[in-house]
Amino acid sequence: MDAFVTHTGTAVPLRRSNVDTDQIIPAVWLKQVSRTGFEKGLFAAWREDPSFVLNDPAYSGASILVSGPDFGTGSSREHAVWALQQYGFRAVIAARFGDIFRNNSTKMGLLPVILSPEAVETLQKAIEADPATEITVDLSERQVRAVGEAWSFEIDDYTRWRLLEGLDDIGLTLRHADAITAYESERQPWLPKTA
């Protein structure tokens, strides 16, 4: 996974709520068996509309997405995270996220940042007024800074540490293989087996 410490970049305002993962990456894109090439499918249906914000050249090169609430609801497809990352996004800022999407993001090093609706509004206004506005997302300080203001955000210590270090979850868990084996030896005997 990519480590995330601090990132400064320009941002895209996405003034929509309930941006479900079917919008982020439509189902036809999920047929791929590789992990790459998903940037082309990002918001595929919406991008057909020339007035969609991602088609505005003023926002090309942006690396932070500032969205309305409930971003990433719906399907568990991690492809949504891959599509955002491969398109060039490093962080998504919203007032609320779908749980599975948020979880998937932190496994991949895409930082989901929860700010208050007011803070999101301030950021959206600022980047709408001037698309060159830079936003800093600072995970080590748990802070978002832009237009002379700073907002703190919450993230649990463990997830933050994993992101800062870019650590692979599986490797961490396998350090506790003994505990897993011990647990397995005590499971109820009637529990089903597939094989």
């Binding site: 991949m108 979850d169 868990t173």
Partner: peptide
């Protein structure tokens, strides 16, 4: 509950998941 592909890999490898 539903999980993403990274977690699918995690469960395949360890039969566990870290979760709050």
């Amino acid at each position: 509950f539903g999980i993403g592909t990274s977690e699918v890999e995690h469960v395949l490898a360890t039969q566990t998941l870290p979760a709050y």
